[in-house]
Nucleic acid binder design. Structure first.
Lengths: 338, 338
DNA sequence: TTGTAAGCGTTATCAT
DNA sequence: ATGATAACGCTTACAA
């Protein structure tokens, strides 16, 4: 392994002091044209690159941000990360990526690691409710720029970037209504803040519209957005629909995986999706787009979500003392074949 | 923003010197039980956490690795990253994630950034051939532990983790043969080392088996693994198959996106996949698994690929002077319905 | 315009 | 077993 040259060596070679080299590097103070030339030659000759660790230490600024996310292969999260990255790269910041497997303990540990590494800011995708609720993030947010994406808790003072899930659900349900559906069911996973919010919106909508006085039909499967979710959803819908004398003619699913499973059930029963029964997913991941029959969905614009979060983060990094903001993003209905 | 306490303050409060605190922290030298207690109390009281930047600077070891990848939302790459992460997290290393959009210039720039941040090692997923070929990575690999995943160039001395694409292709083609297919076509994207390797394997296989003396039928679409690839593949196959008096009865596709597109074409033509015509993808991403008709594919075990790369990287980090290795991973045929 | 020297928060070396 | 002190590689007053 070869030696990395330092600012001292450059200085020596150029016959100047290290401060002058630093000034040439940072262009923050006047340097005589001729000296600058000499220094630049020395830099070139020695292939000098400043050690950013040392710089970060003295400047108390690492030009580094951290992303905390439950997982990286999840289609939703990876899109958000992409959005963050898009905004971050041009700022010549660099990103620590930490996955937590959705475990609150891991989330706290990785958070600590990031803090100890003096990151300039942190974005948390789908923060664990437990950690939001406990005030952990409120505390962290007072120490260092922090943005929570897609997770929120009443009374907790943080920077948020959220989707308007209620509006999204209502818009989807309104679409069902306009299409002439009156018996609308709802398919959700086990526990997640976002599922709860959607279900509440669903129940309220039914009540307001005077539909299904018994409160509609809520189908529930285990958590998840992954392959296994598809099969679970298929079974649940298949069962609920019985011998195709189904009790509903429209189904709002909490994500695209569930919608795909529902679609499969519907096709097994030889029902015509989009005519005899309507299915709507949530998110607009590639799942809904590339499904054999493209699935209607509520687009969550994940990339935009990430970009907005990053933008907000850099605002706060630029001006740390400001008040927190809760940014609500709009969703959009994507009507496809189902 | 609150002040972060330093080792000095802990020392003062505990009535010892900073070296003693350091020793307590690192447990690398004997400390009297009683002193240790006092120091630990001070640490607790001040909520002291060591500044890892300072530690990295003096130790010349950042406990940090860098991942360079063309993109993060690509299903192949995200799985590899997941594999790396799985292996990295327990080592209490933390990961810089850099995306390059598959641009050689970006790749070089991000590489530089990583080096300037004193990462302890770097994994490059799908390194740009141009950069491998030019000797850039060979040079970097002599300075710092480096592993290239899924990219290789003759004569370039680096640590590699690769899939045996040739064996994978041959196994797939052998399967076609056993199924009774004799007119085998090949569908590839425009330019990629991996496509070239597969095509060569394909041609050799045909020659050896005495099939298609004219060299078989190679279909070519633009690069990519994304939604747009599906449509391009569909069109290409549709066209090649014409009025279903197709010139082939089996098709090997360079990735799962292409296979999905091919499958669509086949179904449009009312051919029965898996019987009248066989389709095989590459990679075993969720695309092939969740397709409406599950697609046969060559499993590239991306997660394992990532884990192996990380494992190899840490071997080299642990013992930097060793010779490079080229690790070839086996692929596996996954026979599904097509 | 440039040099000197202090300082960032640690760990490492050398005494004691 | 512990304390001084130098060092890591840089930036930044302060002086010249």
């Amino acid at each position: 392994m070869e030696h990395r040259s330092t600012i001292q060596e450059v200085a020596k070679r150029a016959g100047v002091s290290n401060s002058t080299v630093s000034r040439v590097l940072n262009k923050n103070y006047p340097v005589k044209e001729e000296t600058r030339k000499r220094v630049e030659e020395a830099i070139e000759a020695l292939q000098f690159k400043p050690n950013l660790l040392a710089r970060s230490l003295i400047q108390d600024k690492s030009h580094t941000i951290g992303i905390l996310t439950p997982s990286i292969e999840n289609l939703f999260f990876s899109q958000v990360v992409k959005g963050i990255d898009r905004h971050t790269r041009p700022q010549d910041y660099i990103t620590f990526l930490c996955t937590t497997d959705g475990d609150p303990g891991n989330e706290r540990r990785m958070l600590d690691t990031l803090l100890n590494r003096s990151v300039d800011g942190i974005i948390v995708i789908d923060p664990q409710t437990e950690n939001v609720k406990s005030g952990l993030y409120e505390k962290v947010g007072r120490r260092i720029p922090l943005v929570l994406v897609n997770g929120w808790y009443k009374g907790v003072d943080c920077n948020y970037v959220l989707n308007d899930e209620v509006a999204g659900a209502v818009e989807a349900l309104g679409h069902f209504l306009r299409e002439g559906h009156r018996r609308i069911a709802f398919l959700r996973g086990n526990r997640s803040h976002s599922y709860d919010v959607k279900e509440e919106a669903y129940r309220e909508f039914l009540a307001e519209e005077g539909l299904e006085p018994k409160g509609g039909q809520v189908l529930r499967i285990a958590d998840g957005n992954g392959q296994e979710t598809v099969e679970q959803a298929r079974r649940a819908v298949r069962e609920a629909l019985g011998d195709r004398q189904g009790t509903f003619d429209a189904l709002l699913c909490c994500n695209d995986w569930m919608a795909l499973g529902a679609l499969r059930a519907v096709r097994e029963l030889k029902l015509v999706p989009g005519r005899e029964i309507s299915i709507m997913g949530f998110d607009n991941t590639l799942i809904s787009e590339i499904a054999d029959i493209p699935i209607s969905t509520v687009d969550h614009h994940m990339t935009r979500l990430g970009q907005t979060a990053a933008q907000r983060l850099f605002e706060v990094i630029g001006e740390p003392k400001q008040k927190t903001r809760k940014i609500i993003m709009q969703t959009d209905l994507v009507i496809r074949s189902t």
